[in-house]
Amino acid sequence: MDFLYNYIYYIGAFGLILIGLYILLVKHNLIKMIIGLSILETGVNLFIITLGYLDNGTAPIFSKENLESNMMVDPVPQALVLTAIVIGLAVLALALSLAIRLYDSFKTLNLKKIKEQKW
């Protein structure tokens, strides 16, 4: 139980990463794969955020006087994740637009059927 309590965030993050990768490995539908990518990215982001967690920490904002700086959570992972989220968003937007075009051209989203570029 203690283990679960200590590592629950990691388990969640790794679970998301695992699910994302699993979807990418076994699904054929492009939209599902894009969802998989999204889940993967979310998992990674959660993982990085978790790295900065501090037991009983507060948000790193000096909104009031006399806040203890060493009780604040690590601000860096938050900044990194902010960037990572935006990048994920960009990739997602691009992927979706490509999916629209792909459907226009091939009339299917099943990547098993779209194999013109090979060998």
């Binding site: 978790t50 501090l54 060493n70 860096v76």
Partner: peptide, 16 residues
Amino acid sequence: FGKNQSKIGKYFVANG
């Protein structure tokens, strides 16, 4: 997990 701040994190919180 949840124990320490990182090196640069500490610096930012202290001096930011």
